[in-house]
Design a protein around this nucleic acid. Sequence first.
DNA 1: AAGTGGTCTAGACCACAGG
DNA 2: CTGTGGTCTAGACCACTTC
Lengths: 257, 257
Amino acid sequence: MSLIAPQPRYLQLAQTLISEIESGRYPVGGLMPTEFALCEQFGASRFTVREAIKRLVDLGLVSRQAGVGTRVLSTQPRTAYRQVMQGIADLQQYTAETELEILDVEMAPLDPEIAALAQAPAGQSWLHMRGLRHREGVAAAPLCVTEIYIHPAFRSVREVGGRSAVPVYLRLEEQFGESVAEVQQQIRAVALTPEQALRLGAEAGAPALWICRLYLNRRGEVIEVAISVHPAERFSYSAVFRRERAPARGPEGSDEA
Amino acid sequence: MSLIAPQPRYLQLAQTLISEIESGRYPVGGLMPTEFALCEQFGASRFTVREAIKRLVDLGLVSRQAGVGTRVLSTQPRTAYRQVMQGIADLQQYTAETELEILDVEMAPLDPEIAALAQAPAGQSWLHMRGLRHREGVAAAPLCVTEIYIHPAFRSVREVGGRSAVPVYLRLEEQFGESVAEVQQQIRAVALTPEQALRLGAEAGAPALWICRLYLNRRGEVIEVAISVHPAERFSYSAVFRRERAPARGPEGSDEA
DNA sequence: AAGTGGTCTAGACCACAGG
DNA sequence: CTGTGGTCTAGACCACTTC
């Protein structure tokens, strides 16, 4: 038919449906035509129609339910920007090249402030660890001070003394089979307390990044709280977000080079 | 067959293949059996086999290429955590409830520091805007000071004076059709300069969050640089990351409530 | 009972990569 | 040229929702 764009029919069909949704032809909250109806309208097989609708689902334009139909969720494809990230490790941004030196470990009642963060009853005893993070073996000034609180259910976690490059949440996954389903991260600016300044070899009152991560299990319970305080000049937090398109199926972008 | 888990065959098949990849039966970098071979092995149709392999692709375990085959990429499914985010707006985390008050706009040569950030020649003239961000109409102390630099190609951008709740990058998309393909964000801790402290009604030297966002177009060129400085107690940056599983097809999590 | 989407079969033709 | 994965058809049965 055309020399320029011999796109698969299901993509053409998807584009048509997207346009019609944007134009308001199918009101938000209402039902799209059934698969059978679309097969007739477009003279295509059910397979082709379903492949097309799959694209609409990926774009967040519609939702489907057996026995009901295809419901329009939005008139605009959600512009999904996606953080470029391989895993939790990218949150730390340096796990591989740094080590956590644990200074002390003890069971201790939670401060009210930490209890609030952990959504736990104040005064409940959690495993509390204090440490310093260093660049791989280097004896220079540490990158940050770290406080880690671990839910009492996992207080028997092993191998947490000394220096290690393995993050604590991974230990929990290994030893208890408790997998992390969600991480909540908060970043603030704070001034270094005299105690922190002493440990870091920095100046009290100097600006620092305060990073708190809550690790939640599948049931939404906090199993670990980790708080790091980085002097301003020793760390900055970076993230990259890319626009997410419908996953390129055809031979397009090569992910090789 | 079984009362407990009548999973679709393509899911069972996918699970089998995942196990075999993890066990090392198909070495990383090598080719999986062809679709036809799998159809014979499992006594399933090509459709079922392809649905199963689709899951492997989603998990990042294999890549496929017509004319070549299905290549094993990794022995472990990449644990993808995904930031919960609707769009760029979530980066600002408050666009809807706040307004940017522009104090002045001028063309000016870039500082060397900004030029480095923008990956632009030092001294090149960009459109430079200074402003304060307020809570919706409230006259209280501003949330932050903001400096925005816009690539000279878009210096004719309109309606940037006064107060507005519309982010500048959206103006660029509307007026020039230049869509933002990537956002790079960096967060640091800084001490407020006397000038910033004056504008913010805060104390000089107090800790603050320094947030810099680079907006890039499709070609990877920086089209806007936005730097915000938030006094510590007026803002914190939050993000949530969820473990990404193979997209639930069946009637599982309801996204309604 | 009727209709929906979810799963599955058994074919087919194509563009592309490789020998 | 053969074989790969990508696309597509015309059927089918099922679980589920709705009436």
